[in-house]
Design a binder for these strands. Structure first.
Lengths: 182, 182
DNA sequence: TCATCCATGTAAAAAGTTACATGATTTT
DNA sequence: AAAATCATGTAACTTTTTACATGGATGA
């Protein structure tokens, strides 16, 4: 899968500028692309070449000129085919902290505990920002009964919640070892 | 963080060949590296240059010659410093399926439901292999009260469990919309 | 005034993947 | 007889990241 489909997906909901798309991709917690300039502007160029997008240059006073991209009917068709036929891949959990923990034999029990507590704090901070985003989204509440964006936001919240629960379970195990050592 | 630290970490537990390391990295669900030849053999060369590792060539009959790598005292020191001072980064959840779902406006409710069910099945399969690995590890049970490997395996299991719970919640929401449409 | 945001794009460097190359052993 | 596993390494290609380049508006 390439970033091109993600861009088509975003533009299937509303029209956006390259800069807007870049931010959306960068801020998304689940997209596997960084959303750097090179990536986004190149992809947009290619999608326009393939006639899956069209753009309109908007000149504005007191603000920089921008290009707004819109999906074409051909783009919608390609997107639909992709969504339907792409087999849903299982998530990848990249957790550098677990790589760190795998080297824990170099540390004392107290050092491991401190490390785990710092990790818990970092994850908790992330969880809270995601909960806040979801809360704000639900407060707007204009989406009716079925709200896909809410579902996507909830996915993030649940992932971080599960991680917090694991750290709590891990801290109990670590304290168990600390007592054993006394 | 680079793959070099992961290799040092693995070698801090036991000595391994390049081929073994490659497999460990490839099979790890949380390491952010693919573990391809180029990556692993280059990293090993560099770590040896820096005197963080040493290797011994093992000639064997009826089997290919292999190089076994061992961590040095300097290597252990570098590893310990890294584990202690590296600030524990929050995990990244790369979920291509959510990118797909974000384009769901192109689909009917029935198509979304079918897509979500396929995803649930794929995640469930993954969950079961991880549960199986954990079960086998616990059956060996030679690690005493505190078992770091079990903790790492549990982390994976919990991540997939959380994902399954989310799909169940999502399927209820989708069915809600389906009934609304009737 | 200095930093950040908006807005577009390109060039160079780094990292990663895929394929190539070799060859014995074990499994299907 | 073919495919997979073990085992090492390199070359070519692709992708990604970082930095460069420009310039007005906004905010601390």
């Amino acid at each position: 899968m390439s970033v091109n489909y993600a861009i088509l997906g975003l533009l299937s909901e509303r029209e956006l500028s390259g800069y807007d798309l870049k931010k959306e991709i960068q801020e998304s917690p689940y997209m596997p692309w960084s959303g750097n300039n090179n990536q986004v502007y190149r992809a947009l160029l290619q999608l326009c070449e393939d006639h899956l997008l069209v753009n309109e240059t908007i000149h504005r006073e007191n603000a920089p000129t921008k290009k707004v991209y819109r999906i074409t009917e051909a783009g919608k068709k390609v997107l639909r085919e992709w969504v339907l036929h792409m087999s849903p891949g299982v998530p990848e959990y990249k957790k550098p902290f677990l790589v760190q923990l795998a080297s824990a034999s170099q540390l004392t029990t107290a050092e491991i505990e401190s490390l785990m507590m710092r990790y818990r704090q970092a994850v908790l901070a992330e969880l809270m920002t995601h909960e806040e985003r979801l809360r704000r989204h639900l407060l707007r509440g204009e989406e009716g009964v079925f709200d896909m964006d809410a579902l996507l936001l909830e996915n993030g919240v649940r992932s971080y919640q599960a991680e917090i629960e694991w750290t709590d379970r891990a801290l109990i195990a670590i304290k168990g070892r600390a007592e054993q050592e006394e």
